[in-house]
Design a protein around this nucleic acid. Structure first.
Lengths: 194, 194
DNA sequence: TGTACATCAGTGAACGCGCGTTCACTGATGTAC
DNA sequence: TGTACATCAGTGAACGCGCGTTCACTGATGTAC
């Protein structure tokens, strides 16, 4: 039954991808190893050939999810004016759960309050992901100082994460859209007055 | 062993209070019935004399937590000017996890991303709690229209919830304080320009 | 007001289940000569 | 290049454990006469 190195690497990547998707969709606590392995067309035992524990999987899956979300946001800014870049980041972030297929969900909005009780490694990954988004936004903010830009960007990220999380709780799609729209208007109001 | 009606009512209240505290501190998924009952100085079986299921307990405990948090916020506004009232709400909300004893933690910030997967009853309670805070803030916002005040208040609540949630993930207290402070500055900037 | 009985708050063991993880096993892959 | 053996990816049953919940039981409380 042994697989080639290439196949094994592909299996590992598949488990990671499945886990990332499932954690984002259903949270860290409710997704079990059997779910992840079955979703990867594998049996439970095989998991431990690739990862040391569920916590390690959560760490890697979160990291991968941040990379994906960040890449999507960054990609939206290339060749755009500062104002337009910000507008794209905000719109894409706020629309993450409305896009069909939801290909770039952010861990902070999807299971942020579970991260609080995760082990230090996972929390470090989460805070690093947060900081990367803050820096990306700050890069397109026209402030007198870098410090000021980072402070404003931090506030904006709080708004973005809060809005997407609240919109996910809303039972009514219309209310979800209203929450996201209100957050967008609030941020737009900030940007257009230096 | 039977207890009087008054004692039974007190027991029920004690379970609810313990559960509220534990859910806010540790999340919905990680707190078990045995934890709640032991924390209330009771044995597991007694739980079902007072609540139909864990989900019902979560519903009531969340509701109680919202009531408590809302009462604290509302109380801060009595006899204050609109600007000062907003300032108090924002400061008290953002400081909720920094206060010793944490007597009025908000479910949205503490286990918001778990609410997403809760049953409709719990989600309805959560969204109702969200709306009450939005309305409270809107009451002190000097907008031309009520609609406009509610929209701005909604954006502010997204910022507040996101900031407290992110600050809870931060491993470093200094970074937590920075996140909260940046959110506060962002909101302050909004208010002082009608 | 006193007595007899029904009620039921709380106990603590037990149930069934799913969890994260381990393990003996398989057979194809990789390695050494 | 071919052969013999070691490695190890993946299987699927099993382990120990803790979960939400049930249940027979207890004895004090509440109710009816």
């Amino acid at each position: 039954m042994r697989k080639s190195r290439a196949e094994a690497a592909e299996t590992r990547a598949r488990i990671l991808s499945t886990a990332s998707r499932m954690f984002l969709d259903n949270g860290l606590g409710t997704v079990g190893m059997r779910d992840v392995m079955a979703g990867s067309s594998l049996t439970p035992g095989g998991f431990y050939r690739h990862f040391g524990s569920k916590d390690r999987l959560i760490a890697e899956a979160s990291s991968a999810a941040f990379d994906r979300a960040f890449a999507m946001l960054e990609n939206e800014t290339v060749g755009k004016s500062p104002d337009h870049a910000i507008e794209r980041i905000v719109s894409v972030y706020l629309g993450q759960a409305q896009v069909t297929g939801k290909p770039y969900l952010c861990p902070l909005a999807m299971f942020g309050s579970e991260l609080r009780h995760s082990d230090p490694q996972v929390r470090a990954i989460a805070i690093n992901g947060y900081q990367r988004i803050v820096q990306l936004i700050a890069n397109h903010l026209e402030h007198r100082t870098r410090r000021g830009a980072l402070a404003t960007a931090s506030g904006i990220v709080s708004t973005l994460v809060g809005a997407v999380m609240l919109a996910e709780i809303a039972p009514d799609p219309a209310m979800a859209r209203a929450i996201l729209s209100n957050a967008k208007v609030l941020i737009k109001g900030l940007i257009h007055r230096p």
